[in-house]
Computed example of a mutant assay.
Amino acid sequence: MACASGKGFRNRRVAVPDFSHELQIGGRVAGVDEVGRGPLAGPVTAAAVILDPTRIPEGLDDSKKLSARKREALWEEIIATAEVSIAHASVHEIEVHNILRASHLAMLRAVQGLRAPPDHLLVDGTVLPPGLNIPATPLVGGDGRSFSIAAASIVAKICRDRIMVDLAQQHPGYGWETNMGYGSKKHMTALQNLGVTPHHRRSFKPVHNML
């Protein structure tokens, strides 16, 4: 059976990232992205990635659009060919500040962890982290528009996922090895039955309501 096609589908292009923003800016451009703003448990993780223009891994895209196997394969290529820095903001910092500020702290730390300051930053989102002393451009939906940000999204997600799998071994029952701390049905049931762990974000409403 053939798929139906109508006017609304003609000439529709699927958005894919490219390297045009980096080339237009010139110099050493770092893509910056974070993961983990929505979960009820665990840190927020950020990555800064400076790609080698001559060795860009094939298939870079928003980490959310990729299979786990593809993300892992790209992670290996990115680590092998690019300059990468990964950083975190802890659950305590999320509680002391707020999730947006904690995300920005993780981003700042990731940028500061690069071997040398980049010439420019491409940051996913609408708001730049306060305190940047490097020229930067916010890019809405950047992980689907810029290869460098897409690479950062993949690195940050792989790293945070591994942290949550490790924490799941220490705190079994919450399903963190599969839900990565998000409020899945299994996670919410475990909160009711097992209680709140030190890795839960107590200021988040679903957790706060359990206390």
Rank of each mutant, 00 (worst) to 15 (best):
C159G: 10
N193L: 15
P135T: 02
I94S: 02
G113A: 03
L122M: 07
A151G: 07
A136N: 00
K7G: 14
A106C: 01
G36R: 00
L194D: 14
P57L: 05
A110G: 06
E76L: 04
E34P: 12
G173T: 02
R37H: 04
K70I: 01
F19N: 15
M210S: 13
A151L: 03
E95W: 00
A89H: 01
F9P: 11
G38S: 07
A2V: 11
A190M: 14
I134P: 10
I86V: 04
N179C: 06
L194G: 14
G59I: 00
W75F: 10
R101P: 00
V165C: 13
A48H: 12
V196P: 14
E95C: 07
V207D: 15
F147V: 00
V16D: 13
P129I: 00
L51C: 03
R115H: 08
L108A: 04
A89N: 14
M1Y: 09
L23A: 08
A80N: 12
V14Y: 09
R12Y: 11
A168V: 02
N193E: 15
L114W: 04
K185D: 14
A68W: 07
G141H: 01
V44E: 07
Q112S: 15
G142P: 02
T189F: 05
N193S: 13
R115A: 11
T137M: 01
L108Q: 12
G38Y: 07
I56M: 01
V111C: 11
A102D: 06
A46N: 13
A152H: 05
M107F: 00
S90M: 00
V84R: 04
H200R: 12
I56S: 10
M1V: 08
V207W: 12
V127P: 06
A106D: 00
A46G: 09
G183S: 05
L211M: 13
E83L: 02
I86H: 14
R145D: 08
V96R: 13
A87S: 07
S153P: 06
E83K: 10
R145L: 11
D62N: 06
D52R: 02
D62H: 02
A102P: 13
E93P: 02
A150V: 05
W75N: 12
D119H: 04
E95T: 09
G8N: 14
H104Q: 10
R160L: 06
P43S: 10
R202V: 03
I163N: 03
A30T: 09
Q169H: 11
L114P: 10
R101G: 00
T54V: 05
R69H: 10
L128F: 06
S5I: 03
V140S: 05
G175P: 13
R162H: 03
A116F: 11
A190C: 15
P53T: 05
V165K: 14
N11Y: 15
Y174C: 11
D166S: 09
K7Y: 12
V165F: 12
V84Y: 12
M188E: 15
I25E: 15
H21K: 05
R69Q: 13
A46S: 13
L108I: 04
V35H: 07
R162A: 05
K157I: 03
S90P: 09
D61K: 04
T54M: 02
G125L: 01
I99L: 06
M188L: 15
G125N: 10
